[in-house]
């Protein structure tokens, strides 16, 4: 079962790469029709979804309990969020950043240890799934906003009409990401209270989640301020992606945290 899941992950990775190559080719050629790359992305996401289902079946719980599973899920979330924004705003160019990020995460997932990790008793609750899904939805949306912020800055002077679209994507994905991450903080607090008797812990992962939450709260407020809208918010969003990556993997790798992922 795990072998099949891995094959599906590799197939998804290949399709993401092809989808990226097509997007890049069209970008270089100046062709704005996104049909082919969008179709490839859609198929890749479907295959990726099957890999997640197979992994869930194999381990008997939502695939979010170790580094391999969270990488697989994070990568899927980024691709899905990209596709949603691609359809919603009809811009394919963001894939040039978000799909390499998703592919990188998936490649990393394929390279790490896949072994079965039994769930700790504290993880056997619906709050685990809610908390992790909301966190990764937040991370994925912040990744999309990072891609949009980059293209906003690129188009700001050259093409004000396009840059407006990217600005709207930055704002929308930041607000959605912040809302999902708030839900993650909320569900995490309830879960911690029920499992350990405390809704807040002074340990690196909780602190960095708080940092990320407040950081994007600042960006969301920046959007309400005329002098911050646009360029400043875009730069803050780009830097925010580094905070996302550090919160997700940096804390687990560089800081000794009881909450590694």
């Amino acid at each position: 079962m795990q072998y099949t899941a891995n094959l599906f992950s590799i197939a998804a990775l290949l399709l993401y790469s092809v989808s990226f190559a097509v997007s890049l080719w069209k970008f270089v050629k100046g062709d704005s029709r996104p049909f082919l790359s969008r179709l490839l992305l859609l198929i890749a996401i479907a295959i990726h979804f099957v890999a997640l289902i197979l992994r869930s079946y194999y381990v008997g719980h939502a695939p979010m309990a170790n580094l391999y599973e969270t990488l697989l899920f994070f990568s899927f979330s980024v691709s899905l969020a990209t596709l949603v924004y691609n359809f919603r705003y009809k811009v394919g160019i963001m894939e040039l950043i978000s799909i390499p990020v998703a592919s990188g995460l998936l490649a990393f997932a394929i390279s790490v240890d896949h072994k079965f990790t039994p769930l700790f008793l504290a993880l056997k609750t619906i709050w685990f799934e809610v908390h992790v899904m909301a966190s990764f939805a937040g991370y994925a949306l912040f990744t999309v906003s990072f891609a949009a912020a980059f293209f906003f800055l690129c188009h700001m002077k050259r093409d004000p009409v396009k840059s407006k679209v990217y600005e709207e994507i930055v704002n929308s994905s930041n607000v959605w990401g912040f809302s999902f991450f708030s839900l993650a903080m909320f569900s995490g607090a309830i879960w911690a209270y029920l499992a350990w008797g405390n809704y807040w812990f002074w340990e690196p992962k909780t602190l960095w989640s708080f940092i990320l939450w407040f950081y994007f709260a600042g960006i969301v407020h920046g959007h309400y301020l005329k002098s911050w809208r646009g360029k400043k918010v875009a730069w803050m969003t780009i830097f925010g992606f580094l905070v996302v990556i550090f919160t997700y993997v940096g804390v687990g790798l560089l800081m000794k945290s009881s909450h590694k992922l």
């Binding site: 002074w202 602190l207 708080f210 600042g218 301020l225």
Partner: peptide, 24 residues
């Protein structure tokens, strides 16, 4: 002021970042 909100937000972020390393 919303500007104060943003300044405070990033001050809180900076102090917490420092704190997360002090914790270790």
């Amino acid at each position: 002021s919303i500007k104060l909100t943003i300044v405070l937000t990033y001050l809180i972020v900076s102090v917490t970042v420092t704190g997360s390393f002090a914790l270790l």
